[in-house]
Every structure is written in structure tokens, then in C-alpha cells.
Design a protein around this nucleic acid. Sequence first.
DNA 1: TACCGTATAGAAAGCGCTTGCTACGGCTGT
DNA 2: ACAGCCGTAGCAAGCGCTTTCTATACGGTA
Lengths: 367, 367
Amino acid sequence: MTVTLADVAARARVSPATVSRVLNGNYPVAASTRERVLRAVDDLDYVLNGPASSLAAATSDLVGILVNDIADPFFGIMAGAAQTEIGGPGDGSGRAGGEKLAVVCNTGGSPERELTYLTLLQRQRAAAVVLTGGAVEDPVHQAAVSAKLAKLADAGTRVVLCGRPPLPDGEAVVAALAFDNRGGGRRLTEHLLSLGHRRIGYVAGPLERTTTRHRLEGHRDAMRAAGLLGGGTGAAGRPTDGYDEERLTVHGPYDRRSGYDATLELLRREPEVTAIVAANDTVALGACAAVRDRGLRIPEDISVAGFDDLPFSVDAVPALTTVRLPLFEAGARAGRLAMGKENPPPGGIATIAAELMVRGSTAPPRA
Amino acid sequence: MTVTLADVAARARVSPATVSRVLNGNYPVAASTRERVLRAVDDLDYVLNGPASSLAAATSDLVGILVNDIADPFFGIMAGAAQTEIGGPGDGSGRAGGEKLAVVCNTGGSPERELTYLTLLQRQRAAAVVLTGGAVEDPVHQAAVSAKLAKLADAGTRVVLCGRPPLPDGEAVVAALAFDNRGGGRRLTEHLLSLGHRRIGYVAGPLERTTTRHRLEGHRDAMRAAGLLGGGTGAAGRPTDGYDEERLTVHGPYDRRSGYDATLELLRREPEVTAIVAANDTVALGACAAVRDRGLRIPEDISVAGFDDLPFSVDAVPALTTVRLPLFEAGARAGRLAMGKENPPPGGIATIAAELMVRGSTAPPRA
DNA sequence: TACCGTATAGAAAGCGCTTGCTACGGCTGT
DNA sequence: ACAGCCGTAGCAAGCGCTTTCTATACGGTA
């Protein structure tokens, strides 16, 4: 029923070996023969059997891209960029070639699913794996992931991290591209402080994620430097204005709903808040909605800021002050790294800068 | 170097056949034996060789989900939903099982890439394929896709369409879930008409996509029924108010930028426009920005409406009037259909209703 | 003419797994 | 006590391809 290499060979009056060679194009085949084979392939509408080929050659053309939430453009943009560098028919040469099957796997932020996907990709002998986005900080899980990645690397799979901090023992990966979440978070809060804000609420992401922690640390670094945080690290031991960081921080998932709820909670805890920093733009949107529903204006009554600079952020009203992450560029670079089309950065680690984007949603607090 | 089935068998003192059967769990194996095997698997850290397994069994556990734009939540939501029904470890039973590798492939809206991915999935003997979103209407390409899908179906791959109209010769697919784009578009414009709008601009999607055409047709159906369109089909041959449909329609990609540019163009062509309907919410956001940049207020000066009801639409200011598509539900259903967990609708075709969501961005035109 | 290098094609041995069929105890039924 | 079964396990034949090694043919050189 299904056409095999042997069928093609028979029709082209050559041996299966020859057909294989013209298809893979890494062995001299006379032009006339090649043509005959190609015609037979076309005539019979032959499609290579991937599993058989992978088995025999001990490699496959699968490349996995793991994302935490496929419905979130943050990941979509990175994954799409990576895929353009990896995937398909872009090599011009029509006929086969470096054609890889770039696929994205949605972990939904679950460590188990992450591991499952990694195992599944390992099963398939994937050519490369790209992990995007923040990691979960649970040490047990982290160890499991590290071990898995090491095994993948052992088996010849190229592993690259994109928007995720390097592994503790970073040897297993080709490269790690990490965003400067901490620096971005710091600069964002510094901006708010320079506008004169002092009571700043923070709507953080899920507790155990690296992204969450780094952004929050950046925020607190800035607050501390301004002498606004407990712990007496403030300049000259200045009094900390009487409020503690816990009270002005609320954690929740990276979604709109969480931003809404958390902001309401923040406003309840501390009605005097003059600015709210959100864990990311999506959350910020929810925060904006909550602020408005409470009858407050942005930025006159309350400033709101986000993180990531997703495409819709510039269209918010007022446009969202945020921190831009070059998601597309990072994803593309990760894709190239995964394909071996680009040399890894020195030490395998690169930090990607985050740029403060000041827009209309932040302004000085009311006198 | 790598551990094979035979190694496990040796360690468990059974034959490879038995190990295979334990792993696949479709043949009676004594409990004690099973346990011994399982322990050996663990001890050796054995990972099945996917290609070998697929080759021997002539099936694989790959399920492909094709999307037009992975950075667009419209697709992300559907893909994510499908993936939850297909993917991983959700079956509770820890150990193996109906574990499929659900992967999403980003065609970027390019017909060639779509075909390439289909071929790649065919190579891998994918267990199922889900195609999401509108199709390109070029007959050559459509024929090619149909042929490819037929071949996939022949080879035992389950094909389901989600948010895409049925194939002309719909026999090749398990099921087609189509959105009622036309009806949604019609109701949206009827809403605007009922508010009193007469000069309505339309920012359409790319010309050759079914989604674009259906939504636009819905819009024009409504306009025509109101006697506002050329062609004299209007009730009682009423004069068509002197403007033609082409002038008030601008095509462009499904992105924010296109919405912005097209709206400026529309405003230039016809300054008297009182409402703008966008091809989708993302485009609508761009349209809003353009309207504002021209110094006009929404909805007092101009009403704006979108389509899809993506999560951010409710947070726009004012909240966007749009048409809700149950993306998550549709994606999940497609996933179940692909897995054979749900019976196809009668005739293999289901139309999914689109619900009008009236919000703040539309209002009666100024007197 | 004899010899050898080069270019091209074929033979065949697997790659690691699945599965139809066979084999072998121990039980039940008579 | 014997035939016939049921429940398990093993044997061995591939699945369709890649690749090493070998064979052939041709042309040029000595």
C-alpha cells in the first residue's frame, strides 16, 4: 500500500542505496541517475518514512521549543522567531535540505509536563531543544531538569535556554540567553521613584519562578537604595516610611485576572498607594482595569507600569510604561544557536538587556 | 552507550518481547514479572527509542497542530486547549499511557510552510493533525492541501479542522469545526446599523483568507439588507447612499499595525465615517489608536468594533464591542476529536456559534 | 597492452522495536 | 489419569531506511 524506498528504487531501476543517497544528497550520484530517481519519487509520490530513517541514521530532524504558556504572546513571539530560524523551506533549494521540524510544546507552566515533554523529545532523539521563559525554582525539579538536559546533551541533542537563567551546572547546554529581569525591574522602579512615588505596590508573578523573583528583586533593590525598604539597608539608615515590603506585594499567576484581583487587594491594604508595578504587561492590563473600576484615573491618581512591552502595550490607554524585552531577536538567536548557525556567546551565557519604555501610564503622584 | 530494550530485558532476566509488552501494557504480563521489568527500566534509566518503536509499530504518538501565527493569542488559545486534551501526563496514571506528543507548528500564514509541515508530519507518521484558522483560498494550494490531507488520512492520521471551513470534498477529515464568521460579522454590523450608523468603514484581513472573506460577507450582508450597498439588492431598490463598498474597505494583515494604517486611510477616504469594524480585535486595537491619534473620541465621534473577543479586549478603554468566539472550547473539542475521545458531529461538520458582545466602544453616532 | 585511480552503483548488515506464532506449565473437567 | 485450556513468556521475522564495504567500469598513464 504505502510506497517505500524499494518501490522507488525498482521504478528507477537502481538499488535502494542509490535512492537513499540521492535523497540525502551526501554522496556522489551521476546526474542522469539522480534525475531518474527524482522522477520516480515524483511519479510514485513517495514520502520518506521518518521513523525508519531516524532509526537507521540515529538522528532525527525534530527540534522542540518548550514554552510555559502558548496563549501568551510573550512566548508566542519567541517561539515564532525561533521557528523561523529553524523551520522549513527557507533554504531556497526546494529539495530537502536542512529541513527541520520545529515544534512548540506547551508546558502550561507545569514542571511535570516540562519533564514529560523533555522525555518525549528524548524518545524522538530530537536534534535540539529550546527552553523558553522562567524556570520553576523547586530544587528537586530543577535537579530533575538538569539531569534530563544532561542526558539529552549526551545523546547529541543541542540544548539552548532562552529567557531562562543558566543552569547551576551550566555544562549541559549549548547556550543560555538570559533576560536582564533584575536590571529592568530596578530601572522601572527607579523611574517611578524619580517621579516622586514612594508608596509603590507590586503585583508579582507566581512565587516560585525565576522571572518573578528577579523582577521583584530589581524592584526591591531600587526601593532599598531609596531607603524605602525594611532591613535598614536604606541610605543612612533612613526610616523606612513605616511600611513593609510584604504588605505591598501580592503574588499571582501571569494573567489579566490576577492583575485585577491583586490590584484590588493592594488598594484595600494600602489606599495611599500612588503607583503599581505589575509583573508583566498582561497583568498590568488587569491592574489598569481594577484601578479604573475603583474610580481612579491613570496616571493622574495612580501610575501603572508593566514589563515585556508586548505589542498591545503601546495601544493601551494611556500607553503603558514598561520594560522592553527583545523577544523576537532573542528567540531568533536561540533558534540559530540550536541549529548551530551561530556561535555560542563566550562561556555559553549571554545576558540580554532590558530597556525602559516610558509612556503615558506613569506620571508624578498628585501633590 | 545508550540503553536498549535488550539491556533492560537482560537485567530483568526476561525476553525483549516481554519488556516491550510491559511498556506498552497491551498484553498480559504477570505482576511479578512486570515489577521486575519496571525496576530494571528505572535502574538503567531506560528511554524508549521513539523512531524504532514507530517504525516497528507503524504508528507514532506525534500529533501536529498547525497555526497561522503563534504569536497571536487567537491561535495560542486554541492550540493550548487542544494540547491539554491531547498531551501528556494528565491521565493520572503516572506510567505511560495514551501519552501523545502534541506539538504546534507555526505556518506563519504561508501556504508553502503549511504544506511543508504537513509533509514533515506525514514523514513522521503523525497520529493526528489539527489545522486551525482560516485557509488560503488559492485553488491550486487548496487542492494541494486537500490531496495531502487525503493521503494523511489514508495513512491512518486523524485530521481535524478547527476554525477552518470544511474541505470542498470533506471526506478526508475526521471533523471540521467552523466558526460562524459570517453570522458573527452580520450581527456585529446589524448592531452598528441599529445604533444608527450608516457610513461604516471596514478594516479587513488579508484578501485571500476564508476568515477574511466570511467576516466581510457577513458585514456586507447586513449592509445590503439595510439597503446601503451597491448592486441594488437593497430593500425596495433604495438608493445606496452614494458610496461603494470598495471605498470603505481596506485589506491588510491581521495585525495591529495594519489596523492603524488602514484606519488612517479610511479616515482620509471618507472623513464622514462614524464607525469602523475591524477584522479582529488586534486590528481593532490599532484602529483605536489611529482614531485617537486623529483627535477623535471613541465612541462619541467614532465607534470601533472587533472580532474574536480576545482576553485583552475587555480591558481596552473603552472596552471593545466584539464578537466572541469560544476559542478554548473549540480547541479542546478539536483535541478530543483528534484523539478519538469524542464522536464527530453528524456529517463531520459543526458550526460554532459566534456571540455578539456589546461593550463601550460602540454608541450611536453623533447627531 | 597492462595497470591503477576515480567515479559510481550495489549488496548486505544492521538500527531497536513490535508482534504473530509457538511453547510450556499447571489446572480443570470427565 | 489424560486431554484440553488458560495464562505467560520467548522466538524470530520483519518494519524501511542508512551506510560500510565491495564491485564494476571507465579513462589515462607508463
